[in-house]
Computed example of a mutant assay.
Amino acid sequence: MAFQNDNPTFLLFGKSGWIGGLVGDLLRQQGARIEFASARLEDRAGVVADIERVRPTHVLNAAGLTGRPNVDWCEDHKIETIRANVLGMLNLADVCHQRNIHLTTYATGCIFHYDKDFPEGSGKGFKEGDTPNFTGSYYSYTKAMVESLLKEYPNVLVLRVRMPIVADLTYPRNFITKIIKYEKIVNIPNSMTVLPELLPLSTEMARRGLTGIMNYTNPGAISHNEILELYKQYVDPEITWSNFSLEEQAKVIVAPRSNNLLDTARIEGEFPQLLPIRESLIKYVFEPNAARKAEVKAAVRSMRGRV
């Protein structure tokens, strides 16, 4: 299948979501031809109607179910999670395949965890072809299941997003915002996705017609403490926090969380200018916030219940 097109038309699913909204804004800024889908993924007739209406060359999917306020929600809503994350995703991939349309889907890399073969701190990352080994949360279980099926579709690019980050440190779904709000955190190095740098690469991947699985993170890993140290350096030198163990964390969450390092050789081969995670965070997050540190510090302290 050939998917490259000099004048693509994009159809975006998930316009009301966080990443979907950012992708829509980005494509408009790029001057791209973009339309927004109205159907839910599990509504195959609605998906077909959207595609027939727009006749896109490329479909981008940022829809899906992660749960509110977090993935613990999925533990008690398994049917809804299956309907959106498995049935809906396969619906979209299949409809696009039948019409020879390229599909890019923003998925998750939270389907792996450190183990004896991939120990924490070893620098050995999970590759695109490795079999997922984390099923601790029902959300991750469904995402790993559907990824194993999506890779059979020759028209699909699966982007494994991890702990997505934006510059807005008050946005509740920003990974940094989440850990800043807590007085106690675990301290584990992880692969992460700095969206201001990586989102433009995703639309370029679609234009290039890339397919298969892509570890969609910045190179390397960074720990929770290292991120808060950067926040302390650039924004608020008075911030404090403490650490607790995974065993202690397990007492305050329903489902375990994934911690891993993803190998980035493939994405670096396509985009050799991609910054390592620490450098990307400084450029796209902490330096911009340092320029308005008083405002940011006040907002964050308010979120933490501090005066």
Score class of each variant (00 low, 15 high):
G269R: 12
G129C: 03
R68N: 10
E295V: 13
F126C: 04
L157M: 12
I51V: 13
L159M: 08
F36G: 06
I267A: 06
I222P: 01
R160N: 09
V158Q: 02
A299D: 09
D117C: 08
L201R: 13
I101L: 01
A298I: 13
V48F: 02
Q30M: 10
V146N: 04
Y171K: 06
E229C: 08
R301W: 08
I101Q: 01
G125F: 05
S245R: 11
I82S: 02
R68D: 07
T217S: 12
I239W: 07
D50L: 00
D263F: 06
P288Y: 00
L150V: 08
N190G: 05
K78R: 14
T108S: 13
S302N: 13
N260H: 11
S280D: 05
V146L: 00
A63C: 04
E152R: 15
G212R: 05
L90G: 07
K127L: 11
D6S: 15
L274A: 03
K293F: 09
A206E: 02
L198M: 13
I180L: 14
I267M: 06
S258R: 10
K127H: 13
P219I: 00
R33A: 11
L22F: 01
D6T: 12
M192E: 07
I253A: 07
T264W: 02
L169H: 04
R207W: 06
G17H: 07
G125K: 12
V158F: 02
H97C: 00
Q30L: 08
G31N: 01
R55N: 08
A299Y: 06
T217H: 12
Y106A: 15
I34R: 05
W18T: 05
P56R: 07
Q233S: 15
D6K: 15
N259S: 12
L92E: 00
Y182H: 15
Y216P: 01
G269C: 07
E279S: 11
